[in-house]
Design a protein around this nucleic acid. Structure first.
Lengths: 111, 111
DNA sequence: GGCATTACTACCAATTTGTAGAACAAATCA
DNA sequence: TGATTTGTTCTACAAATTGGTAGTAATGCC
């Protein structure tokens, strides 16, 4: 069996969680995804993915206290686990590896 | 219509073709993939992918003359099309976008 | 209380992706 | 000629990932 390789949406989602830190809950992640990728992922697609990432041990979640704002119900906050961080480093290495040796015009600047 | 997003193997394959240039034919691509990714893709997986990429118009192929070496039968050589190059640039932008804002600690040695 | 808003769950459908591996083809070598 | 090497084609499938819909829950506002 392969080394549990991440799907495209899984990687994007994991990165969104890493980026959003304390603000990493479902709908915020969904907004981040939309902004980054230019497309809307359905609510179902997102939560399915988050759940799968948690099942794989790359994320954990906890429910927050409700907030005193309109619609401020409890949010499910996600955090990277150690394995999640490792998976990202692994993904990074993989990206660097497959892009290596590709000429400037086609090469990404991951700065 | 979204610009037919590339699968993981499709992207890796496309990059291998870009890198190998004149030496981009089936089995050489397969060796490159193995070296880059650390895993062996089956012959079927590779040619299926190459065929898909050609169907999508991202690659073209032509058969070479046989070579005067042992087992030197005609090879099917692949080249990037304009659309293929564009797809790579698109993939590059996408990668840059999803990785943007991710702190150094998660992206250790990025070439 | 009733409504709009924000958020998550459950369940299911469908597409995409990757796989195996045998068969076929053509070349040199002995 | 027959063995060996390199290379491609085919087919049919298995599994993983992604996408969608509808429903439920909690909150403040009026």
């Amino acid at each position: 069996m392969p080394i549990a390789t991440l799907g495209a949406l899984e990687l994007t989602t994991l990165l969104a969680v890493a980026r959003l830190k304390d603000e990493a809950y479902g709908l915020a992640i969904r907004r981040d995804l939309a902004a980054r990728t230019g497309r809307d992922y359905s609510v179902g697609a997102l939560y399915t993915t988050l759940q799968r990432l948690e099942d794989k041990g790359l994320l954990t979640s906890r429910h927050s206290e409700p907030l005193p704002i309109r619609g401020g119900r409890s949010r499910r906050h996600f955090t990277l686990t150690g394995a999640g961080a490792r998976a990202l480093r692994e993904a990074e290495r993989h990206a660097a590896s497959i892009w290596a040796g590709i000429g400037k015009p086609l090469r990404p600047r991951l700065a």
